[in-house]
C-alpha cells in the first residue's frame, strides 16, 4: 500500500509538472469552448449550444488523459526507470493502481473545469451538471485504459502519434461534438455509434437535458469498451513487464 501510494504520488507530480500536459489537458478544451461560443454568438443558426457542446468538449478533453498516461509509462519503460522498480519488492497491482488512480481526479477536475467555464459563458449550472460529470467517469476509465495500453506497447514517439494525433482526432470527429452525426448519416454514423465516443457524448447530453432514461443505453457502450481497454492494458502491461526484462 505504501509503495502504491508513493508511486501514485510520483506519477501525479510527473504529469502535473509537465507544462504541456496542463496546456493541452486543461487549456485546450477551455480555449475550444471559448472559441466555439464566440462563433455561436456571430452566426444565426444554433450550431454550438453550450448545453450540447460542453459534454462533447469534456469527452474530447479526456482524450488527452490517454496521452499523459501513455507518455509517462513509455518513458518509464525506455529510460529504465521501470527496470529499477521491477528490482524492488513492488507488486504488479502497485504499478497498475499507481498509474491509474492519479488520473481519476485529474479527469474529474478536467470535466469540472469545462462545465464551470461553460457556466461562466452563460450555461445554467443545475444539479444535472454534477450528473453529467459523474456520467463522464466511464469515458475517463476508457481513456485511462487506452493510455495504459499504448504506454505498455509503444515508445514515447509512437505514443505521440497514436494518442496525441490519432486518438484525439478519432474522439473529436466520431463523437458528434462538432456536428450532428445525423447530418452525415450512412456508414460514418454507423461507425461512430459502433465506437464509444459518440455514446459518451450522448450520455453526457442526456444527463444535461434531464433525459435520465436515455443515459444508460449509451453508457453501457462506454462501460463495455472501458472494461475491455482496462483488462487488455493490465494483461499487456504484465506481459511486457516480463518481456522487457526477460
Amino acid at each position: 500500500m505504501n509503495a502504491m501510494t508513493a508511486f501514485s504520488g510520483r506519477n501525479t507530480k510527473e504529469m502535473l509538472r509537465d507544462p504541456l500536459n496542463l496546456a493541452f489537458g486543461l487549456g485546450f478544451p477551455v480555449v475550444l469552448l471559448l472559441l466555439l461560443t464566440a462563433i455561436q454568438r456571430n452566426i444565426p443558426v444554433n450550431l454550438f449550444q453550450l448545453e450540447r457542446l460542453t459534454p462533447g468538449i469534456a469527452v474530447f478533453g479526456l482524450s488527452f488523459i490517454s496521452l499523459f498516461s501513455a507518455t509517462l509509462i513509455s518513458k518509464d519503460r525506455t529510460t529504465s526507470f521501470l527496470m529499477r522498480l521491477f528490482a524492488s519488492p513492488m507488486r504488479a497491482s502497485d504499478y497498475i493502481l499507481g498509474y491509474t488512480l492519479p488520473l481519476i481526479p485529474m479527469a474529474l477536475a478536467q470535466a469540472l473545469l469545462c462545465y464551470l467555464v461553460a457556466g461562466l459563458l452563460g450555461m445554467q449550472l443545475t444539479a444535472n451538471v454534477l450528473l453529467a460529470i459523474l456520467v463522464s467517469l466511464p469515458a475517463a476509465a476508457l481513456f485511462i485504459g487506452i493510455g495504459l495500453l499504448c504506454g505498455s506497447v509503444f515508445n514515447d514517439k509512437q505514443v505521440g502519434g497514436i494518442c496525441g494525433a490519432l486518438l484525439t482526432n478519432l474522439s473529436a470527429w466520431l463523437s458528434g461534438t462538432w456536428f450532428d452525426l445525423d447530418l452525415v448519416g450512412g456508414a460514418f454514423k454507423k461507425i461512430a455509434y459502433a465506437l464509444p465516443f459518440a455514446h459518451a457524448v450522448d450520455a453526457g447530453r442526456a444527463a444535461m437535458s434531464g433525459e435520465f432514461a436515455a443515459i444508460m443505453p449509451h453508457l453501457w457502450w462506454v462501460i463495455g469498451y472501458a472494461a475491455v481497454a482496462l483488462v487488455a492494458a493490465v494483461l499487456v502491461f504484465r506481459k511486457k513487464m516480463l518481456r522487457d526484462n526477460g
Partner: peptide
C-alpha cells in the same frame, strides 16, 4: 541500471 533511471520532474 545502465541508463540513468531517475524521475525527471521530481
Amino acid at each position: 541500471p545502465q541508463e540513468t533511471a531517475v524521475a525527471r520532474n521530481l
